[in-house]
Amino acid sequence: MKAVIQRVTQASVSVDGTVVGVIDQGILAYIGLGHDDDLTVAKKLIDKILTYRIFANEAGRLDKNLQEVQGGLLLVSQFTLMAKTDKGRRPDFGPAMAPEAAKALFDSLVLYAQSQYSKVATGEFGANMQVSAVNDGPINFLLEV
């Protein structure tokens, strides 16, 4: 399982012109699910995202996590994160979890995130989404569990 997390001042996801998820300051997290991933791994990833220290303290050091700054968390499924890109000029999506299983796991990941933190929004699994974000910093990290 992989996640690209971005510290944002705002972010939103729209499907067919309708906003389906929106946050102000917080983390936009793109989530990629692989064949061997399960709910145990998903919980570990969410716990890491919620406690990863990417927000500045009073001295300007990255020392505060999402919960400490009471920011929002916007979760967006993105199977392309699992692509193998080491050979050729076309991504190989073989490592990505099959859509039906991935939807079930992503839904469980979202439910777990919502049980751990109150400010969680999502995109729409499998939809053609338009994501808008104002990256703060810019600060981005690739997390793997």
Rank of each mutant, 00 (worst) to 15 (best):
M82P: 04
Y30F: 12
Q78A: 14
G137E: 11
L50P: 00
K44S: 07
E68V: 14
A59H: 02
P99A: 13
D37T: 10
N135E: 11
M82Q: 09
Y30E: 06
F125E: 04
N57L: 07
T18E: 15
G71D: 01
T85H: 08
L75P: 01
M1L: 15
D86P: 04
V8T: 07
F79Y: 11
P91W: 14
K44Q: 13
V41L: 03
L142H: 15
L81M: 13
L73I: 05
Q116T: 11
T40E: 14
R90S: 12
T9V: 14
D24Y: 09
A102V: 04
Q116M: 15
E58C: 12
D63S: 10
M129Y: 04
L33V: 06
I31E: 01
A3R: 03
A133T: 13
A133E: 08
K103G: 00
A101Y: 01
I49R: 04
G137K: 08
E124I: 13
A113R: 07
G34N: 05
I31N: 01
M82E: 05
Q78F: 06
Q70E: 15
D107N: 08
E124V: 15
L39V: 12
D38Y: 04
E68L: 11
P99M: 11
G71S: 00
R90G: 08
K44R: 13
G26S: 00
Q10G: 12
E100K: 12
K87V: 14
F55T: 07
Y52A: 11
S108D: 08
V131I: 15
E124T: 15
Q116V: 13
D86N: 15
I27Y: 00
T80Y: 09
G94P: 07
V120A: 02
S12I: 09
A29C: 06
F125S: 04
G126C: 05
D24N: 14
G32A: 04
G88E: 10
F106R: 00
E144C: 06
V134E: 09
G26N: 02
Y52M: 12
S132P: 06
R89C: 05
V110R: 03
V20T: 07
L74K: 02
V41R: 01
A127D: 03
S14I: 05
I23Q: 03
Q67D: 07
N65H: 03
Y117A: 08
P138V: 10
L111M: 11
D16K: 15
M97A: 03
I54P: 00
H35P: 06
K43L: 07
G21H: 03
D47T: 05
R90W: 13
R90F: 13
N57P: 11
M129A: 08
A42E: 00
L45C: 05
P138F: 11
Q6N: 07
E124A: 15
V131S: 10
G17Y: 11
Q25R: 15
L74R: 02
G71A: 00
F106Y: 08
D24F: 08
N65D: 09
S115H: 07
L74Y: 00
A42R: 01
V134F: 13
L50S: 01
A56L: 14
